[in-house]
């Protein structure tokens, strides 16, 4: 029996058509962090590789940073805002659970009334969004999807916690995923490990504030078990990254660029060792001047590698996001 349902018809393949980023104006050096914690610049640099980060001002909201990054990505892709027929925003620091920020961004950026939604997948949020966008384009339910990773993690930073006060930064990164005649996004290797759901987390649940007199409970911050996260990120994520390379049929020798989530320089260095990446592979080290911007880190790092000439359009890049959940997603893409 023949089905009566007419199937959707998408593009043969999908690709990243453009990338854009927004970094808040204010640069915060380690010296400023050290006003609130008993530590040293040398300690912070040796544990994290971070020298400076950007913290957003009152006007640099999640929406405004998203619009700035999204606008750049649209221009870079050479399309019009009205061509966008899908908007995905990955974030953990948009402080309204409803409505999603994606609808406001779709409207204000000039995309009309496309499907728009937020996703919560921690520092893997961008690569999760990338994967959903690819599916939408190849399925035919969208033709040009705006994927944004955006965070104001300074709002979720305990400035007096010497283990995390220096770690996080703010910013937004965006890409346009659109149709392609040839493969330009490999299979995504992704998953979660809920047994480790307490390893990276928000310290206080919002409902506590409903039941507690105002001012009695400190505003939540992101906290993590450093050693557990480090072990998982380096050794388990190196395996995932290798699986993504294998799934795409790309050898380390054929790889041009490696863009891991910018969590910590020590994680990046150890992953390179574990993956045995050859010297010719350009590695994103944006964490040094951007800090850990969770869902925004990969598109921000991608934009900077292209802007500084360390990577070029058409290069083959391995991207991997990993973080709170724990969740992860890795794939191989052609750079826009």
């Amino acid at each position: 029996m023949t089905s009566k349902i007419r199937p959707s018809k998408g593009a043969p393949y999908a690709r990243i058509l453009g990338v854009g980023g927004y970094r808040p104006t204010r640069v915060v050096p380690n010296e400023e962090i050290l006003k609130h914690i008993d530590s040293t610049d040398e300690w912070i640099r040796s544990r994290s590789g971070i020298a400076t980060r950007h913290w957003a001002g009152p006007d640099e909201t999640v929406a405004e940073m998203s619009l700035a990054a999204g606008g750049k990505a649209i221009a870079d892709a050479g399309i019009s805002a009205s061509d966008i027929d899908g908007v995905i925003v990955a974030t953990v620091s948009h402080f309204k659970q409803t409505p999603a920020i994606a609808t406001e961004i779709a409207h204000r950026i000039g995309a009309g009334m496309p499907p728009a939604f937020d996703i919560s997948a921690g520092c893997a949020g961008f690569t999760y969004g990338l994967t959903l966008a690819k599916g939408m384009v190849t399925d035919g339910t969208a033709r040009h999807v705006l994927v944004i990773g955006v965070e104001r993690l300074s709002d979720l930073t305990d400035k007096e916690d010497r283990a995390t006060a220096f770690l996080f930064g703010d910013g937004a990164g965006a890409v346009i995923v659109g149709p392609s005649d040839e493969p330009a996004m490999g299979p995504t290797v992704w998953g979660s490990d809920g047994e480790k759901s307490e390893t990276i987390k928000q310290t206080v649940s919002w409902e506590v504030y409903r039941d507690t007199p105002a001012g009695d409970v400190r505003f939540p911050a992101i906290t993590q078990e450093g050693q557990s996260v480090f072990r998982w990120a380096v050794f388990e994520m190196a395996k995932v990254a290798q699986e993504a390379l294998d799934a795409a049929g790309i050898t380390a020798d054929q790889l041009d660029v490696f863009i891991p989530h910018q969590a910590n320089m020590r994680i990046i260095d150890s992953m390179i060792k574990a993956l045995k990446l050859p010297d010719h592979v350009a590695v994103a080290r944006d964490v040094e001047t951007t800090g850990n911007t969770s869902a925004a880190s990969i598109p921000l790092a991608m934009e900077r590698l292209l802007a500084t000439g360390q990577a070029k359009s058409g290069d083959t890049a391995l991207v991997i996001g990993f973080g709170a959940g724990l969740v992860y997603a890795a794939t191989v893409v052609t750079l826009p």
Partner: peptide, 8 residues
């Protein structure tokens, strides 16, 4: 050997 190197 700091806490992260200890993991390695």
């Amino acid at each position: 050997v700091d806490s992260l190197s200890m993991v390695e």
